[in-house]
Structures are given as C-alpha cells and as structure tokens.
C-alpha cells in the first residue's frame, strides 16, 4: 500500500481557548511554519479535556494526541490546569503501563504569547508520532469496506 511511504500522521490537538489556541493563532499571524498534521479542537480549558475524549480520539484512529493548556499559574479559571496536571500525569502513566507507546499522547503548556513555541511543540510532537508510525493499539477497526470488496 502507498500508506507506508506517503503516510502522514493525524494528530488531534485539544487546545485551551485562552492560551494554546491563541498561541496557534499567533504562530499563524507571525508566519511560524509548523506541520499541517494537527487537527485542532478548541476547548475552554485544559481541565475540560477528559480522559474519555483522549481515549475516544485514539479509538477513532488518531495517530497522536496533543493536549495543550496554560502554564501553571496562568489558568483563566485560576486552577483548571492544576487539576488537569494531576489527571494527565496519572493518565499518561497508565497508558504507558498498558503498553501505549510514549509519545502518542502528549501534553504541553503554551501561552498566548508563545507563537514560536507553539510551532516548536507541534514540530516535535509530529516528529515523535512520525517516528512511531501509524497507531495500531486501541484503534477500532470496522472492515465494512473489505467485506464489500469481497462480495464485489
């Protein structure tokens, strides 16, 4: 298949509206290049991102996940990212524990003024995910098409 040669990862990025999303905006306005592999989901706070969302993205075939919020101390809602930090620490350890490659699910802090840093984060996350190859673990597959081809 051509997939192996031309494969480009799809990375779902959950970005906090108040910082990383604005950081992505700034990167664009400032013309900092970053790989087009990310699909951005704007969330009100990194504390809003639940484990269900992350796992759901993995299940639906995301090759990588990036959750990015405000630096500790900078949360628009005072403490959202502090709670998120505890939750993500446990989640990323648990995913590692069951054998999900480290680097599939990434977390970062990027503020609204860090356009260049945002581009760097996306660059490095994309490189990591590329190095890992397409996601296979916890990716749900339905072979409707294959069955159809068999019939046809």
């Amino acid at each position: 298949m051509t997939e192996t040669t031309n494969w480009e990862p799809k990375i779902i990025a959950f970005l906090c509206n108040w910082c990383s999303y604005a950081g992505a905006d700034l990167a664009g306005v400032s013309r900092f290049q970053y790989p087009p592999n990310i699909r951005i989901v704007r969330v009100p706070c990194s504390g809003r991102v639940s484990e269900n969302m992350i796992m759901s993205a993995l299940k639906s075939g995301a090759d990588g996940i990036l959750v990015s919020g405000c630096h500790p101390g900078d949360c628009h809602y005072i403490s959202g990212n502090y709670f998120a930090r505890r939750r993500f620490a446990l989640l990323s350890n648990l995913l590692d524990f069951i054998g999900i490659e480290s680097g599939r699910v990434n977390f970062s802090w990027v503020s609204a003024s860090e356009g260049e840093q945002f581009a760097e984060v996306v660059q490095s996350v994309t490189e990591r995910v590329k190095a890992l190859g397409p996601a296979t673990r916890l990716v749900k597959k339905i072979d409707a098409l294959e069955t159809e081809l068999l019939i046809a």
Binding site: N106, F107, E114, Q117, E120
Partner: peptide, 19 residues
C-alpha cells in the same frame, strides 16, 4: 484529584519548551 499543589510533578510534560 480534587486538589493540587503548585509544584506537582510534571515530568510527563514532555515538550522541550517547558519553562
């Protein structure tokens, strides 16, 4: 998970730009 401290470990924040 309903509390936090300012200096909770964040080793899992794996991007180089962590300030």
């Amino acid at each position: 998970l309903t509390t936090y401290t300012m200096d909770d470990p964040e080793k899992f924040i794996a991007t180089e730009v962590t300030p």
